[in-house]
Design a protein around this nucleic acid. Sequence first.
DNA 1: TGGGGTTTGTCACAGAACTGTCATGCGTCC
DNA 2: GGACGCATGACAGTTCTGTGACAAACCCCA
Lengths: 220, 220
Amino acid sequence: MIEDDDRIRLALTLALEDEGYVVRSAATAEEGLLSQRREPADTVLVDLMLPGIDGFQCIRELRRTDDVPVVVISARDDTHDIVAALEAGADDYLVKPAATKELTARLRALRRRARPLPAAQPAELVLGELEVRPLAGEVLLRGEQLTLTRTEFRLLSELAEHAGQVLSRQQLLQRVWEYDFGDERLVDVHVGRLRQKIEDNPGSPQRLVTVRGLGYKMPR
Amino acid sequence: MIEDDDRIRLALTLALEDEGYVVRSAATAEEGLLSQRREPADTVLVDLMLPGIDGFQCIRELRRTDDVPVVVISARDDTHDIVAALEAGADDYLVKPAATKELTARLRALRRRARPLPAAQPAELVLGELEVRPLAGEVLLRGEQLTLTRTEFRLLSELAEHAGQVLSRQQLLQRVWEYDFGDERLVDVHVGRLRQKIEDNPGSPQRLVTVRGLGYKMPR
DNA sequence: TGGGGTTTGTCACAGAACTGTCATGCGTCC
DNA sequence: GGACGCATGACAGTTCTGTGACAAACCCCA
């Protein structure tokens, strides 16, 4: 739980512990993010109005590396806030004061959907002369570090993670851009840019190949 | 959407269609369940107070066979109802009148969590010297990769998946081309092209044989 | 707060690849 | 022999891809 108001934190903690939950709490986003990185909880509750990094930012930060279910608990019931929080990556949004019963019911509902542990992302993916380190955020080609933009990096990670498997432009749009629809040309363009950086001869790609009519893949 | 109030159904439908959703609606749980069974939607909205089978029961019924995300939209904001709906298997609960923006944001959040359809696709089909890998989008003949077009690939996959079984031109048109009618010669042409690639001697096909009067098959 | 450089997404376009149709020809079956 | 089913080469229209240009959004720094 990330919540700066001591009284609310205490009250919620007690209520949840009563229900059998084990709660760990932090008063700031920084503290919470650190804690989650060190010892991942299986659900995160977060307030929106926090000192320093606010709740929205906190969620986005969390989402960059973590697929943990996130529930916002906020005093504000403004539609705009709700939408923004959900867009930032939250899974649910409750308005304070929230009934404990409702909170725990929503937590249970969410946990039903939670993906069975994201198969511990490997620290390093090696594809021939190319090494991708998702956690470190770096890519090495023949041991030399490449400078990729964030989009390129995510695209590469996604493809590398499914090496040997064709990913359609739609799948890539969804996983890399989180678009549910959109212009597939966008993928082409970024693939093109990525090739400039990871291919020895971008004209005839070896590492990131087109599977005509289906999508792209990196040969295993 | 399962909602008995005509006006609300219409209003919600319009609002959602405005956002790009395709909406199908039913006025009763029975109707809705049937519709979902016949042609599964990827998300279900359901009201709680319905004539006949009520919303709770409807959700439980749905859940027996379907993992589709379910969002309750109800006029009652009683904690007890919320908890009961979530326990019944709902994923989210909104109180009417709900802001369209919030609804769509919650739908998006939910869809992020929705499990991808259990793609019961075999990773590899082996037919003698021929290997078909649907996921990788590749076909190997004696270990060597072939370059097939998408149509050829789909045609081969379909035939390989039903190896030993004759598929009529009509069946192939339906499954590969998704045509419900059409010139059967089309199949011949593509079979011919495919043979050029997978047969050692396309003149007397061994792997993809004609069954005169019936169709084509790949011997098991 | 205001540049200046990056990164992103959109568009238009050209070349390559693919598709569906047709006409022709061959073999088979009755 | 004729009817029929099938194979195949040619071809024109369509689709798919890669790319350069460009503007909007973003980021960093003074």
